[in-house]
Nucleic acid binder design. Structure first.
Lengths: 119, 119
DNA sequence: GAAATCATTCGATATTATTCAAATTATGGA
DNA sequence: TCCATAATTTGAATAATATCGAATGATTTC
């Protein structure tokens, strides 16, 4: 991933509403969510929601698929993985950061979801 | 880290110039860099550079310290670590992403810096 | 203290993002 | 076909960001 592309993804997530949408879709997993369900949960006007969904789609962080009258959105895990990989590769300089603490410790944490002492 | 705070950090990095500055400071390691050196490398006008350095400082991604006539900036590794931890915890949903590939594989990659097949 | 250097702040401008009501498109059912 | 529902697009107002020349503040050197 190049810097320009990474900046686009970061900017897309760098807005409270969009980050909220994205987290919701991550929570929802591969089954995704209808746009209206997102809008209701986050109390967003339809037009505003569409604007942000469009932004997230354009950069490839989510994707929507029509399903009868609804549009089903789901997070694009691969894109997010690439972004994290980019940050991990470019955020650290050998021993100056804590790669193991952050990187290899998280799988268990994630599986357990919010153990003691987190956040 | 909360969503609002994470969004702030992501937005700060979600600009090509600022991401470029940050990567440069990561490369520079804990010894950091003078503002003028950054400006020269990235071909930025002093006022523009100050604007972006101010933004990155405000959110805690970098910090500057006066050193005679110069101001020495360095990346704040801890903040970046927290951000990556936030994304890692909130970007994945159990087996749907590739935690090991991204997370535990990168330490070696990082130490080797850009082996074959990367990026 | 004056001049030189490094960096920030100010000010003005240009550009881009955000919001949302209203209109439009798409689909399913009576 | 007509109506209801889901979502997007349009359009227009507002707000936030980005850029950079010029002025200012800080510090060193002569």
């Amino acid at each position: 991933m190049e810097t320009l592309n990474a900046a686009e993804l970061l900017a897309a997530l760098g807005h409270e509403s969009r980050l909220g949408i994205f987290r919701l879709l991550i929570e929802a997993g591969p089954k995704g969510m209808h746009a209206s369900a997102i809008g209701e949960l986050l109390a967003m006007a339809p037009a505003t929601l569409s604007f942000h969904l469009g932004h997230l789609s354009r950069v490839g962080l989510i994707q929507g698929e029509r399903e009868s009258r609804f549009i089903h959105y789901k997070a694009n895990f691969a894109t997010m993985d690439e972004l994290i990989a980019f940050l991990t590769r470019n955020c650290c300089q050998r021993e100056q950061c804590l790669p193991r603490t952050v990187c290899c410790d998280t799988t268990d944490k994630r599986r357990g979801r919010a153990k003691a002492g987190e956040e």
